[in-house]
Nucleic acid binder design. Structure first.
Lengths: 348, 348
DNA sequence: CACGCTGTTGTGAGCGCTAACAATCAAGCT
DNA sequence: AGCTTGATTGTTAGCGCTCACAACAGCGTG
């Protein structure tokens, strides 16, 4: 029951051939831009195609060429700014390369969910997959899954032998931390992202490295879950510390691992009667569109998501088309965006 | 040059048939769950499939069934919270219905971009398309394009005869405006979204309707472009009006057409020395995750993006599978989220 | 015991396309 | 003229699958 309304079949290559008075093979040649076709013939075929409104049947083509020219994307949490932006970059790059992109969004990336996603994509014959799986456990699961096509990770770290593209998170964290030290702060507190996330780890590592290289003992790390609420809670704790002035490390500067949590921190500080940046400077990471309008405008690290998308597709297509370099990992440079939330103390 | 590394072809149905000692047709029957297969036979086939790691070739299947079981999604501005969330809902719903979703993201939805997107999707044989095209001109272009498959719009309005699903924007706007009036404000100002957007129009219409029904003359509408910056500019103007106290309509309450602009408005008011909500109440629309942590937490309207996604896919599949109802338009109910930014005056 | 029925399996055709090869023709060379 | 060459076109054989139909068993019925 229930079939498409129109029972008239779309025209086939044979129909076009008949209309143009040539063989179907000639039509095929015109369509794939083969050079050895007389200009006149090409013209006739093109006209016939237009007259009939012909469209090449992709299934038939895929069947014989064994190429579906379809790529899959698996993404966790696509509603967040980062993944969503990457997705756009990915799709545009793929389209330019002549591939179609099919997306599977997972709410939470449990191992089973990942396996199902891979199966779903495999069932439609994708030739490769880009996985936006920023959690360590997901990358682990992915590596063990052994998919029947190349898989490239985004923000997947480079410990495992899956090829991938990442922002240089550690460099970004270094930039922020150095910027805060340069602004005259004797130390920098850190509100990290959740434990399992590779981005958290890298950002924390960069922050810690800069402090240690400067001979500063890193204070205790506070941990959030990327949400504004968790930032708010961390901010309340920081506000308490800043006001109490007990403990060895005064709170004058905070590097928060993403902008959303930074928003929460800012609110908590404000509620604690602490002025930003005069009393405590705050910096984030991501440069979400709202960051410029936070109270105060937030110093943060911008990621070039389009570049990340472009390079992952490039890497994936390289693997698919056989000019693969094994488990290569590309890094994209971040950019420090300085705003009022970390204005040097003497200017505030 | 450059072909997939593995030259060994994946197993076919015939291979499985041989392995299981049956005909390829029996394998097909097992795969598609045909009832008339002996349990023993089914078992043998299943085992053979597993032994060989067989996967049904989707291209061959699509060729003969004339069904690709693929849906397209065209979205403008996928990095925004709304479209990104809708996309997730869409994809999950489609997966449940047994379809693959292919996305095309457009930066700006010029008519040509839309046409290219449709062509791109058509070239891969999608059976239908969901278009997230919230601008009037896009919907117009879409209606004129006359795609070779059903098209369902999201937030596409119901003027044109394209079927679609929308949030009841007007109702949302009414809820906010009524809420502000109920809180004791004599009038409500409005910062609208850009002109071409159907969402802007509906939100403005809802706001205006409530005021007029209450016998209040709506003040001049300020217009932004959804960005925090444009909200900031509108906020500066409002701050000026609020302080000058000239003009007939005092500024005590503002309904901003989205949360991002509301963020800008809040900042401008704060910079103008105006307290929210004590002096001016502000409400937004969308309930982005950050809204709860704005200074102060923002009263806004929440949209059930998952529901919107589910219902659009439902509508599209109905059209594809022939049980189409012509150009039907579904509305999803919004939800008013009350927070501190509009706390009644006597509580502040 | 012939007949029809139902359940189970197999056979053959063909979906619309590309790849490989064959055929044809004009041009260029010896 | 006879031969090679290259450009242009046509012919044929599948790609891996589902559909329609045929074949055959086992069973009950008149």
């Amino acid at each position: 029951m229930a079939h498409p309304a129109e029972d008239v079949r779309p025209p086939t290559m044979a129909d076009v051939a008949r209309e143009a008075g040539v063989s179907h093979q000639t039509v095929s040649r015109v369509l794939s831009g083969h050079p050895n076709v007389r200009a006149v013939t090409r013209e006739q075929v093109t006209l016939a195609i237009e007259r009939l409104g012909y469209r090449r049947n992709s299934a038939a083509r895929a069947l014989v060429t064994r190429r579906t020219r379809t790529l899959g994307v698996i993404a966790v949490n696509t509603a967040l700014y980062g993944p969503a932006s990457t997705l756009t970059g990915l799709e545009e790059a793929a389209r330019e390369e002549g591939y179609l992109v099919s997306t599977v969004s997972l709410r939470t990336g449990g191992g089973q969910g990942l396996k199902d996603a891979i199966d779903h994509l495999a069932a439609w014959g994708v030739e490769g997959v880009v996985a936006i799986t920023p959690q360590r456990s997901h990358v682990q699961a992915l590596a063990e899954l052994d998919a029947p096509f190349p898989v490239v990770t985004v923000e997947g770290g480079h410990q495992l032998d899956l090829p991938g593209v990442s922002l240089d998170q550690e460099l970004g964290a270094r930039m922020v931390t150095e910027h805060l030290l340069a602004a005259g702060h004797g130390n920098v507190w850190h509100v990290a992202g959740p434990d399992d996330w590779l981005e958290s780890e890298a950002r924390t590592a960069g922050w810690r490295a800069v402090l240690e290289e400067s001979g500063i003992r890193p204070p205790r790390v506070l941990t959030g879950d990327w949400s504004p609420l968790s930032g708010y809670r961390a901010g309340q704790e920081l506000a308490g510390l800043a006001l109490a002035r007990r403990g060895a490390t005064p709170v004058t500067a905070v590097f928060v691992a993403n902008d959303q949590m930074a928003l929460g921190v800012l609110r908590a500080l404000r509620e604690g009667g602490i002025r930003t940046p005069a009393q405590v400077a705050v910096a984030g990471f991501d440069d979400i569109p709202e960051a410029e309008f936070f109270p105060p405008p937030l110093t943060t690290v911008r990621q070039d998501f389009a570049a990340i998308g472009r390079r992952s597709i490039g890497l994936l297509v390289d693997h698919i088309e056989g000019r693969a370099r094994k488990a290569e990992h590309l890094l994209v440079e971040p950019q420090l965006i300085m705003r009022a939330s970390t204005r040097p103390l003497n200017e505030a």
